[in-house]
């Protein structure tokens, strides 16, 4: 296929809302855009296990501990679905991990914040996973087949995550004064970082043009952020939590909430490496990866031995 045919067959599929599959012709920039986005998504799932893992040994009940363990296992699973989807584009797992360790691939900025109290586990499930769900539901319609399929599986599993987080917050709000204050404090610290999860405003979003044209992205950052705010405000009211935004106000005309400006200076500072936990997150990942190396090597040695016996 010459390059003009290639572009035509690709664009025809995109226009027809057909999915692009691994062996289909695709522009090199489309492939690279997806590798960047899917690997970043995968890294986010895996790095996201760390702030939650911090509370595994201190969960307040056996029930809470079992649930948290299951949730963290899900996050690891989501990372694996996404690594597999990225691998279909011709990048190896090894290369993706290397890019993460060298700081060439990113993960969601939200995981550079620490989990200081048990209420933070509630806030992560409710707000951070809640924001991720809004984003991921839109991505179920993304144009790359393996990515869309991973999103379907992930969305099915995520709603448990959000509900368990909301339950933690609701229970704390029914508790003592100290517990209610703890829940509100977690809300105050996680609300704004959750809003930044949708990325910069549409007017400053550098990668959006191609992503929309190729239907990788189906809804804009600001549209998704608005959707998240509109559904979360009511949930906060039901359990008596206050959204830490003095400018938050219902706008009858647009049938949605107006909100205060996000602190983009802080966002840039944290995403560029200077957040509370950036170094710790990557150091921990490197350490686990190195400490697990002997397991991978032993598995390979065993495989070679079996093969030599069979030959």
């Amino acid at each position: 296929m010459n390059s003009t045919d290639l572009v035509t067959s690709f664009e025809r599929k995109i226009d027809a809302e057909d999915k692009i599959e691994p062996r289909d012709a695709m522009p090199e920039k489309y492939r690279l855009h997806l590798i960047r986005q899917i690997s970043q998504h995968a890294h986010s799932e895996v790095i996201g296990m760390q702030p939650e893992g911090n509370w595994l040994s201190r969960a307040p009940s056996l029930r809470a501990k079992q649930i948290l363990l299951a949730k963290i296992q899900d996050e690891g699973g989501h990372g694996l679905y996404l690594y597999s989807a990225a691998e279909t584009l011709g990048i190896s797992r090894d290369e993706m991990i290397r890019q993460l360790h060298e700081g060439k691939a990113r993960y969601s900025n939200i995981f550079n914040y620490p989990t200081l109290t048990w209420a933070d586990i509630g806030a992560i499930g409710w707000l951070v996973d809640g924001a991720a769900i809004v984003n991921q539901v839109a991505l179920q319609r993304t144009s790359y087949g393996p990515y869309a399929r991973a999103m379907f599986r992930i969305c099915k599993e995520e709603s448990f995550h959000q509900r368990q987080g909301y339950e933690i917050m609701a229970n704390m709000m029914k508790g003592t004064v100290a517990q209610r204050e703890m829940a509100q404090d977690a809300m105050n610290r996680w609300w704004w970082p959750s809003l930044t999860m949708f990325g910069p405003h549409d007017s400053d979003s550098p990668h959006s043009g191609d992503a929309f044209r190729w239907k990788i992205k189906r809804k804009s950052n600001d549209e998704l952020r608005q959707k998240f705010i509109d559904k979360t405000v009511q949930q906060a009211e039901v359990i008596g939590l206050t959204i830490p935004d003095a400018q938050l106000k219902w706008n009858e005309e647009k049938q949605g909430y107006d909100h205060g400006e996000i602190n983009w200076e802080e966002f840039k500072r944290v995403i560029n490496g200077d957040g509370p936990c950036n170094r710790q997150r990557i150091e921990h990942h490197k350490k686990c990866h190195e400490e697990g190396r002997w397991v991978r090597e032993a598995a390979e040695a065993y495989q070679r031995k079996i093969q030599s016996i069979n030959n």
Binding site: L80, Y81, S84, E87, S92, R93, D94, I97, R149, A150, R153, R293, R296, A299, E300, Y302, Q303
Partner: peptide, 28 residues
């Protein structure tokens, strides 16, 4: 560090149904 070989996974959702492709795993 090859991170082991790639395998495709097929799951039979309910008794009597087809095995459907679910995704991939790495394993040696």
């Amino acid at each position: 560090d090859t991170q082991l070989d790639l395998w495709e996974v097929f799951i039979q959702g309910k008794s009597g149904g087809h095995h459907m492709h679910a995704g991939s795993v790495h394993a040696s």
